[in-house]
Write a protein that binds this DNA or RNA. Structure first.
Lengths: 186, 186
DNA sequence: CTACCCATGTAACTGGTTACATGATTAC
DNA sequence: GTAATCATGTAACCAGTTACATGGGTAG
């Protein structure tokens, strides 16, 4: 089961409500998983019934109350079992790459626009992830943090996210450039 | 619909049987999509009924006969509509990243082993993709091919696959290294 | 008073995975 | 004769998406 463990992992960091998790899965957590809010609410319900997380009501005066969740010892045990088992191969699906694959048979204009949009999104994520890294490591420089810092996990996944987004940005930009040049000469 | 267009794109390159497509989706096409053979057989059936591809029987003496498929004009039109429409955000899901995220709470040993396995797979793919690039561009050097070569699409997606696999290999290797060092010092 | 954010869900549907089933041919 | 590769599927199940529903609070 996929989402189950991603949610448990996200809740290891801090306690979150369904709504907050949905936000997190839109940005940071999206480094390794993506999910809609509907999926999250029902997964949280199932996880609580299974005793892997426990929720508590937080009363808020200025806005609707919420229920935040934390991982139970049973939840941690579940994560440990999961980590020791073989990983499924990473699943990767991208509309835009499908379009590039057959670009020779198509009008390149709309695809070029989509590549540029994708590059812009990647730039935005890079800025965000850069800030997250700084916040995580505090005063320490990267080498020191990697050796002796606490909570190395989120730092490492964020580093991975940065490298991935760099590739997305650079590849999208150069691909758009190649297609633009060929448009002129054919 | 996702797989539908990925299959159409793959069949633009050449004619394939279900079995051959399944092989392709395991390696090269996996750059932009992944699918099981069962999914492919049923998708091929649906695509043929919809008139987007057409199949023909190939009689083979030394092995079981097969049916190979090509994209029809209607199929190409479908691809054109697809390319002009907005792309869904790329979906990315990885067990291994989930495990790294919570590595501080877990036994790192099995995860380190998985990272090393992942790096080895990435190396193998890099070698394969490098060969595909060479075969695609023939005698031309890359700059020339990008400007004037025919069939630029598969070349561009393969370039993207290479950059992606490089990140996977490098990140997996350095992450495993970081975790190994910390194991010693904690 | 309108639009947007916070907050939580249900229901119907589509897409994807796992397990199972069959049968021919080739290489050891 | 046993395992591996070629070749094609069915059925049951699980995961993920889309559409819909509700209601309070805040900013303009």
């Amino acid at each position: 089961m996929g989402l189950r463990h991603a949610v448990l992992a996200a809740l290891c960091d801090d306690e979150y409500s369904g709504y907050q998790l949905a936000k997190a899965f839109d940005v940071g957590v999206a480094n390794f998983w993506s999910a809609s809010s509907q999926q999250l609410y029902s997964e949280l319900t199932r996880l609580e019934q299974a005793g892997l997380i426990s929720g508590r009501e937080v009363v808020q005066l200025d806005r609707p109350n919420k229920r935040v969740f934390t991982v139970t010892p049973a939840g941690l045990e579940e994560l440990a079992k999961f980590a020791a088992a073989d990983s499924k191969p990473l699943s990767f699906r991208d509309d835009l790459l499908v379009k590039i694959q057959v670009i020779d048979q198509l009008d390149p204009e709309p695809v070029i626009a989509q590549l540029e949009e994708r590059a812009a999104e990647a730039s935005a994520k890079l800025e965000l992830f850069g800030q997250i890294l700084l916040r995580l490591r505090g005063d320490l420089d990267e080498q020191t943090y990697l050796r002796r810092g606490e909570q190395i996990g989120p730092y490492l996944t964020c580093l991975g996210g940065i490298r991935f987004q760099q590739v997305v940005r650079d590849w999208s930009t150069t691909t758009a450039e190649v297609l633009r040049q060929r448009r002129g000469t054919s």
